[in-house]
Simulated assay, not measured.
Amino acid sequence: MCLRSFRCSFCYIFVILFTLFLCFIISIFLFWIIISPSSVKFQVTNASLTQFNLTNNNTILNYKFKVKITARNPNNNMVVYYRRITAYAWYKDMNFVAVNLAPFDQGHKNTTLLQEAVFEGQSSIRLGPKQIVEYNMERSVGIFNDLAVDLDVTIRAKFGRFNSIRFNSQFVKCRRLRVPLISNGKPVATFNVRRCSSPYFFQDRDDEG
């Protein structure tokens, strides 16, 4: 009799705990659906080159590349805390340098201009014969067509009283930038604003299977 009573009590406790756990999971799922945060929108508002030339038999790239990027938080009740921002510069799908940008906090319905990314120095680079031909054509015209900037961001988000832990957001990709080369203090063309790709900004990339 005692054993049966013990088993009944255990089953009753197990059912209660399982129900509470299930309710907790469902509440988190519903909470996230209700929030359904829209991704932060990034765009490159200006970019320029004052130096971009190959030396040492086309194996060393000398550069001074400046980029201005804005971030738009479209959410009504979401605050985003940017705790780490690393900007990577690419040419012909080859990463040649990275710089750290200043962290900041962004309120809801807010557009923020990030610290200007200044890439300056020299790096080794390996371009194929076709890419070198493209580089020479672009340099003769004064516009480089295949530059890109990616942002590697660590953030924390706040919705009402709910605070997330820090996580690594999906990469923000600003690709296929047509950047004018400044010659004699003047660019040969104007830079056209370019939108960046950030469709899953609030998804932790480290949770991907």
Rank of each mutant, 00 (worst) to 15 (best):
G121K: 01
K186R: 12
N57Y: 00
A102D: 06
V179D: 05
G128Q: 07
R139V: 13
A102Q: 10
L127P: 00
A87V: 05
N77F: 13
V172N: 12
T50C: 04
T190G: 11
V149D: 07
V99Y: 06
K109G: 00
A98Q: 14
A189Y: 04
A157N: 00
A98S: 15
D146W: 11
I26V: 14
S36K: 13
T70K: 08
N76G: 07
R126W: 13
S183I: 15
C174W: 04
A102I: 09
V193Y: 03
W32A: 07
W32F: 10
R156Q: 15
N57H: 05
M78P: 01
D207I: 12
I155Q: 09
P199G: 12
I132G: 08
K158H: 06
N76W: 05
P187D: 06
Q106T: 01
A117W: 07
Y82T: 04
V179H: 02
G128P: 08
Y12N: 13
S164H: 01
I132S: 00
K186V: 11
K173P: 01
G128A: 03
L181G: 00
I16C: 14
S39K: 09
W32K: 14
R156V: 06
F18A: 15
N77Q: 13
Y88F: 12
C196M: 08
S48I: 12
K186S: 10
I25W: 12
N145V: 00
K158Q: 15
T55H: 09
I35F: 05
T50Y: 02
S183N: 06
P187V: 05
S38R: 11
C2Y: 09
Y200G: 07
E134C: 03
F42K: 00
N100W: 00
N100Q: 12
A117Y: 04
D146N: 15
M137G: 01
V97L: 04
I13K: 08
Y12C: 15
S198Y: 06
L30Q: 12
F31W: 02
V99Q: 01
P103I: 03
I60F: 08
L17G: 07
R4D: 14
R178P: 01
N56P: 03
W90K: 11
I26H: 02
F29G: 00
C23Y: 03
S124E: 07
A47H: 11
R83I: 13
T111P: 01
S197Y: 05
I143N: 04
A189D: 13
L20R: 00
L54A: 10
I85Q: 01
A117V: 02
S39D: 09
N95V: 12
I25D: 02
L3Q: 11
N73M: 08
I69M: 02
G185H: 01
K92I: 03
L114A: 05
K41L: 13
E208H: 11
Q106F: 00
Q115Y: 03
S27N: 02
W90A: 06
V118A: 02
Q122K: 08
T59E: 12
M94R: 14
C23H: 09
I60A: 08
Q122W: 01
V179A: 08
T59V: 03
M94N: 11
